[in-house]
Structures are given as structure tokens and as C-alpha cells.
Write a protein that binds this DNA or RNA. Structure first.
Lengths: 234, 234
DNA sequence: CTTGACACTGAACATTTGTTCTGTTATTAT
DNA sequence: ATAATAACAGAACAAATGTTCAGTGTCAAG
């Protein structure tokens, strides 16, 4: 039961993970006696002894005469531990809540939140991992709609699906956009192509025929489809 | 200097931001006396007085007889604050990483991870907000596949889509499941119905015809579709 | 004015907690 | 074997910290 010279003994590791776990679970660092009881070390002086070692080795930071004044710096694997600010806010940014502002129906104009729309209603939000969204997108430009009805089937979108949109008034070729067609009072989801002065709206389903619109003014781009989510819960 | 009835007084706000800043800067919560000196409150009992109020209002969490046993829950703006217990671990639980174990192709059997599959590879994982998944599901039973090819179009699933599946060998009526058809060596996604001894496999696209299979032994249920995700990034 | 609530003071008290010290046991080097 | 060093035990002490309580001022409603 002795690991002299270099390296971390089992007790060192136990103490490090104890500090980490305690901090994670309780929200504040453990006291010396709490570390002792968690790691089966009966004497406070022994815990103190190890803490001093861990501090010298750069694994933790201690604050003299401060209860629970212990900070984890490195993991037992040597991995840097996210300090409070950096780590947490990084986590927060991984999960974004996108406002679900209404329904998208073929026969009705779809709701588009104003650009200064920022009110946060956790009830009507869709939580999305940041990693699923295109990078560099301004989060405040994103909103979500629930598809109502089977009319978007040619866009491979079902009744009940959730579409996440990015607010925009212009589409680039190849993007799937939500479009309001003035001449037929219809909202539709299509791949957008501007070719030789006319607009080709291509359904996602390759077996279906595109719509060709000669007057681009009839096409009002409401937003770009960023993500489609279909929940099959029951 | 009196703000009776409801709402947060300036002192409440000062204390809240003091706790937050202290935690951010030092890595551990402040003691009562430290809060007092930061917020120009001379008496520990007054700090205690306010802390009790803040706890009742749900802004903080206190641990009796524990030095620095204070946890921030809500901001003075009412915004939820990530503290370690109620924040990070809760956040962590809100965001789950589902292993992306392979592709699903019509002409090939789909990969299904073993039930003891637990190895975690952050590279090949899909991050999903817990709120999008059916509650009560065992997370270790979930895995994700990427759809390859246009053969799942009748299931309203596109090339490149990600389907999140739950491992199961039996389907209940009305569930969308991934099925391996023995007789034609084909993987397919269909709504499953067992009726009068035969199996009806219904495409998600209502305009398409169901497949009726008289011998249920031909149908091998590989998993239940839980979620479909389509990313339109470009 | 009286009453009662709320905000606050100051201090005492009880625990919790960090620190230190003496001494013992185990391990390693010589 | 012997000495030196590391690892540990136990206790005592001092400081930090949470808790409680009797009392003071303020303000608004009755």
C-alpha cells in the first residue's frame, strides 16, 4: 500500500473523482472530512496530506482557511476540467430551444416571427442539440412550425412533423424553402431553383414532377428549411 | 429602503449576483459572511434572512449546516442558472448522445447493436434533446441509423435521413418498425399491423398501397422507429 | 394612535471545518 | 539489520461558518 515516487496512487485518483463527483452532485466542493468518508480515509490529516500533494502536482487548487476551498483543475487522466464558467456555458450552448410559433398548412400563410421576436416561452419550444443545426446560423433567426395535414407529402413531410426554419426572404438554388404562392394561395415546401428567369420548385420526392413558375413575383420565400423532425412516439 | 410584498428587492438581486459571481470566480459558493461583506450587509442574520427568502422563492437551494451550501437555481431575471446539481447534470440528462451504428439500406440487413452495447464514441453519435424522445425509454436501447438510398421513400424517409430506433423484436399495431423480410431479402420501414394471422405493412405515405404478408415468420422486426431527423444543411 | 408586518442589528452559540502536532506503521534503500 | 522516508492514525486546537434569538426601527393599515 505504498506508491512512492511519481504517479497518482489509487487514493489520489479516488480523491480527485470524489471532488469531481461531489461538486457535480451537490454544487459545492466537499470538505476534508467529507472527502475522507467518501474515500475511506479516517483521518483528516491524511486527506489534507493528499490534498497538499495534489495541489503541488497541479491537479487541484486550494484556498487556505476557506471551508471547501478546493478546485479541480485536472482530471485523474490529466484532462483539464472545465472550470465553472467555461464548462457550463459550453454545455448550455449545446442545447438550444427553438420557439414553436405555429402550424404550417398548405392552404394558409405560415406564421413567421418578426426579426425582433425574442420572447422566450419554454412551453412552446423545441429543444434541439446545437450539433444538429447548421453552424454559423443565427439562433434568433430560427423558428419551428408543426406541419398540419398531408399536403406536404411530396416534400417528404408528414402530418405532425416539426420543421425548423430559418427566416429569410431569398433562396439559393438547391435549398429547401417554404414558399407562399400568390396565385394559388398556397404554402408549400420545395427545393428551389432559379433558372433562366423562371422558378423551378422541385419536390423532395424524386418521383414527383417539379412545378415551373414563370413569374418569380408569384413566389414568396418565407424561410429556409433547416431541419425536419418526426416523432413516432405513442 | 423597503420593498414589501412580492418581487425581488435590490438586496435580493445583489445577493443573487454575488452568489453567481463568487461561484464563477472562486469555484465555490460564498459563505454567509462573505455575501454580507460583498453586499454591504453587516449582520449575518440578515443575510440568512434573505437567503431563506430566496430559497422559498425558488431562486436558491440551501443545505443546512453545510458551509457554503448554497446553490443558485434561478437568476435575478428568473432565468434558470446552470448550477452543478440542478444544472449541469440535469442539462446532461436533457441532451443524450445516441450511437450512430451504421446505415439502413433496403437491400441489406440493418445493423442492430447488441443489448450489452455500451461503448461510447462521441464521434459517431447523434445528439438529441431528451424532450424529443419518448419518455420512459431506456436510453441504452436506442441507436441511430443513416438512411442510404431512396428506397424508403414510401416511408417518407429520405436518403441521408437519420432514424432513431429502439431495439425490440416485437411490434405493436400502429408502430412504425424496421423490418427484415426474409423472403425478399429486404429491409423496410413500415407501420405494422397484425390482423387475423397476417401482417399488414402500411407505408407512411397514405397514397401507397400496403403489403400483406400471410406468413408472419417472414417478418423480422428489427426495431421501432422513434424519431426521424432530416438535416437540410448545406 | 395602535398594531402588526417587515427590515434590520448585534451578539451569542453550536457546528463544521481547516490546521497542526505527536506518534505509529509500512516500505525502501544501504 | 538499520536507517530513512513515506503513509497513516488520532487527537487537539483554532478558525470559519451556520443558526438562533432578543431587541430596534420603519411604515402602512385599521
Amino acid at each position: 500500500m505504498a506508491r512512492k515516487s511519481k504517479g497518482l496512487s489509487q487514493r489520489h485518483k479516488n480523491i480527485l473523482s470524489c471532488i469531481r463527483d461531489w461538486q457535480d452532485e451537490k454544487g459545492y466542493p466537499p470538505s476534508i472530512r467529507e472527502i475522507g468518508s467518501q474515500t475511506q480515509i479516517s483521518s483528516t490529516s491524511v486527506v489534507n496530506y493528499y490534498l497538499n500533494q495534489l495541489e503541488e502536482m497541479g491537479y487541484i487548487e486550494r484556498h487556505s482557511n476557506v471551508s471547501r476551498g478546493i478546485n479541480l483543475i485536472k482530471d485523474s487522466t490529466g484532462e483539464m476540467v472545465q472550470n465553472f464558467k467555461a464548462g457550463v456555458s459550453q454545455l448550455m450552448e449545446q442545447l438550444v430551444s427553438i420557439p414553436l410559433v405555429g402550424n404550417i398548412i398548405a392552404g394558409e400563410p405560415m406564421p413567421v416571427p418578426a426579426s425582433d421576436f425574442s420572447y422566450y416561452d419554454p412551453e412552446s419550444g423545441v429543444d434541439i442539440a446545437r450539433s444538429l443545426l447548421p453552424q454559423g446560423d443565427n439562433l434568433s433567426d430560427l423558428y419551428a412550425l408543426r406541419v398540419q395535414g398531408d399536403s406536404m407529402i411530396d416534400a417528404m413531410v408528414n402530418d405532425g412533423d416539426i420543421v425548423v426554419m430559418r427566416r429569410t426572404n431569398q433562396a439559393r438554388n438547391g435549398e429547401m424553402v417554404a414558399i407562399w404562392l400568390n396565385d394559388r394561395d398556397e404554402t408549400t415546401l420545395k427545393y428551389f431553383y432559379l433558372e433562366n428567369g423562371h422558378v423551378r420548385l422541385q419536390p423532395a420526392n424524386p418521383s414527383m414532377q417539379p412545378i415551373i413558375i414563370n413569374d418569380p413575383r408569384i413566389v414568396e420565400v418565407q424561410g429556409k428549411v433547416v431541419l425536419v423532425i418526426r416523432q413516432l412516439d405513442q
